[in-house]
Nucleic acid binder design. Structure first.
Lengths: 191, 191
DNA sequence: TTCTAACTTGGACACGTGTCCAGTCAAGTG
DNA sequence: CACTTGACTGGACACGTGTCCAAGTTAGAA
């Protein structure tokens, strides 16, 4: 049972949904997000466009859904004895994951800016996920009264890094290396 | 003489360009970036769509150009005796400027993600502008060997904040207040 | 004034998005 | 087995994007 677009999906529909998302991922890898059309994805999934649109509200929604699933699929424990090391391990895992699917990462950034309500839900979930991962990494190593701003700085910096990667200013493979010193700079004086 | 789209523009064309961009701004304020179409902008400027496209390569390019001009038009001196105060004044001016034109800000975020080469140029300029403003605010108050990461952290956090505003997670009017503690957190231990 | 080069235009084009709906199909229930 | 119900489909639709081009129009040089 999976929650998508407009409704909960199970039974026969669940399989079709799986096929559709699978096809979406393949198509994305194959032709990139600019060239991908909902109709080609539908065709790849062996489904009519009209049907595809009953599962996915829009192209942006498709990208957001794919990204969420990709993100959700791997949840590495932060490793390290201090907050900084755990943060580093967290950003590194995230960045590696992005680097392993650059087309998806490039697709999701503009997609999440859509005002589509189905995208909105996922946007909140994804944002919340980043926050939760950083919070988990920090643990309670930062004084209570400063966790707020520090976490917010981390999330903003990470979103900013994503944005800049989406723009092509930073290669996804360089992300982690660029982010390490930034994270260190943010944490300086808070541990 | 102004540089746009494909070529340098002057003389007769310069006026038409001005009219077109003016119309773009009005239309943006009037109907928002989702409802704006190149054709309505052209109509408002009293020009045919075909003509509009000789000035502006795409809708995204139009937004980027409008934003760049808006940003470029006001360059407040950072005020304050220490780097933190000057940074605060810099982010506040930027945020106020964004808050005064939320439609433009909302339009430019997705627009800058376009792969359109004309957008690319502006993207670099705009990114460079943010960097330059923060660098100017910091002056040489941060030890040489740490300016790099600190500046990068600032730019990333600011881009991230823009992204989140574009997503509607932060109202443009709250931006400055949200950013202040983040900037403070980043600068902690570097002054 | 006439010529020329730059500028503008209408209108069609290919293509993508997302919507709609009447009609077909398949499964499992009674 | 006939029936109901939910899933799926084909095909048209309105609308936007960005491109193209042959045919005007305009301004200034000769």
């Amino acid at each position: 049972m999976s929650i998508v677009a407009r409704q909960v999906v199970d039974g026969r529909r669940a399989e079709t949904l799986e096929r559709l998302l699978e096809a979406g991922g393949e198509e994305l890898r194959a032709v990139g997000h600019e060239a991908l059309t909902v109709r080609t994805v539908a065709a790849r999934a062996g489904v009519s466009p009209a049907t595809a649109y009953t599962y996915v509200a829009s192209k942006n929604h498709l990208f957001a859904e794919l990204f969420w699933r990709y993100l959700d699929a791997e949840r590495p424990e932060p490793t390290g004895t201090d907050a900084l090391a755990r943060l580093r391990s967290t950003t590194r895992s995230l960045c590696e994951r992005l680097a392993a699917a650059p087309e998806l990462a490039a697709a999701v950034t503009p997609a999440l800016l859509s005002s589509d309500p189905d995208v909105e839900r996922l946007r909140l979930r994804i944002g919340g996920e980043f926050l939760a991962r950083f919070a988990a990494a920090i643990g309670d190593d930062v004084p209570e009264d400063r966790v707020g701003p520090v976490l917010e700085a981390l999330v903003m910096a990470f979103s900013g890094a994503l944005l800049q990667s989406g723009m092509g200013l930073i290669a996804y493979t360089d992300l982690a290396d660029r982010l390490d010193p930034v994270v260190a700079a943010i944490m300086e004086g808070h541990l």
